[in-house]
Design a protein around this nucleic acid. Structure first.
Lengths: 249, 249
DNA sequence: CCAAAAGTGTTCTCTGTACACCCATGA
DNA sequence: TCATGGGTGTACAGAGAACACTTTTGG
């Protein structure tokens, strides 16, 4: 059996699935779409679709995201900080269990998207209903709210875990923030994603003291509650050294 | 365009490729095979092959590894320490650039294998020549020694980087060791994989002081040079907290 | 005035680092 | 005896945790 006989390879379908996360209303939310056809008709699922014959995997993920949310993402390469208005996109893992799709053999490459909160989570194109759903309701509370189609529960769980661990040692938490943000807003991202509460004083010293993490945006004030806060943008740093420590409960 | 029309999916070939690493003679080595057919006939490549129609991706990786090295691997799931004689296996990433194989569209799921040094790196089955090659020669020194086939240089680089960062915060370095090993042998693993030298005294305190990392194997001595050293086995811990810090040069 | 969020300073503790020193073997 | 690697003790510096305290807004 020669490893590359072009005529004898088994037929596989290849898709991309998206774990698109954002922070909305004090909750970590994932983008879900409602399936319009069987199997799992009417069930919620992660957005995704076929990779086209001459399309790169990451390009397929970007296209699907754009089609369903009109959100532009940018592939994360080493030392590539997220830019204005663009979401962060990275490969998560590949799921190819035989039988994960009841009709045929489908290998799905999952991508993780970290996006700032959007004014409208407007569904676009051919998708019936797309919306942001709190991941807590989809994962642990999923017994009542209903499970996601296929193995998307596991893909979502893997994506959430990747996001939780990655903001520990990278500057990726800023991908959840708008272009300009305050230290308190960034702290709320960490608190929501990790489900903990952090000391505001120590957090402030930590993030402002890490070179390259934040740069002052000049504009020095904004209303959030009490005293006006300085505005920052994401700096050039991509890795946090020393990392942000996740407290244990 | 419905996302799951069984008759309309584009044809893809799906393969697994292995980045199998071990520590031999003070060098981090990767398993390479020599290609017997075009394209890249005669060139070195990572071992790999087609996923069978009803085979899970991880099972395909295990099968390929067994066929080419008679090495048994075990899929790494959360909280699953490596066991006696078995290698560690985890999914690395998926590579699907159109044109990465000149003949057809091939999506390759790469797996990372961390193995102890083997008595014989014996090639098995239908593979012409399989051998362990120092990764330094394959990566930076690759200009002279010759590049790997396809995009395997990049896959190998990603695998090495994953291994380097993963032994920082997990107990995976023990996967490079035989079942029973000394603290000095474990330290040499870190030194070779990272390409640094570590303080033996502090390293000893660190690893023996981390609960669950090492357990004394009873047998208390062995000859390695000077004074006899205690023998240990890998403990139940999988994550290192606090992590092992990689010194900067 | 009070509540709420933004910042700053200080103290304590923990752990990583550097290095002196002793132990047990082979040659 | 010396060289080699194994293992312990100790002192110093840096960073995280806890928290007192000041600043600046809105109500």
């Amino acid at each position: 059996m020669s490893p590359y006989d072009p005529s004898a390879f088994p037929p596989f379908a290849v898709t991309v699935d998206l774990v698109a996360l954002t922070v909305r209303e004090q909750a970590l939310c994932a983008l879900t779409v409602r399936r319009a056809e069987p199997p799992f008709e009417g069930a919620w699922a992660l957005p995704g679709g076929f990779v086209r014959p001459d399309e790169d995997l990451a390009a397929a993920a970007e296209r699907e995201l754009l089609e369903e949310t009109s959100l532009r993402a940018r592939v994360m390469e080493a030392a590539c900080p997220v830019r204005r208005g663009e979401a962060h996109l990275e490969q998560l893992a590949t799921y190819g269990d035989p039988g994960r799709d009841p009709r045929m053999r489908v290998v799905s490459v999952a991508y993780l998207v970290l996006a700032p909160d959007l004014p409208t989570p407007r569904p676009g194109g051919d998708v019936e209903g797309a919306r942001w759903t709190p991941v807590d309701a989809l994962l642990e509370g999923g017994r009542s709210g209903g499970r996601l189609a296929f193995d998307h529960d596991r893909i979502l769980a893997d994506g959430v875990e990747r996001a939780r661990s990655k903001i520990e040692y990278s500057s990726l938490a800023t991908a959840f923030c708008p272009e300009e943000f305050t230290v308190g807003e960034l702290r709320r991202v960490y608190e929501v994603v990790w489900g903990v509460s952090l000391d505001p004083r120590n957090f402030h010293r930590k993030v402002t003291g890490t070179p390259g993490f934040l740069v002052a945006a000049g504009g020095t004030t904004k209303r959030q509650g009490g005293r006006p806060a300085q505005l920052f943008r994401a700096g050039e740093a991509t890795v946090l050294n020393p990392p942000m420590l996740r407290p244990e409960p």
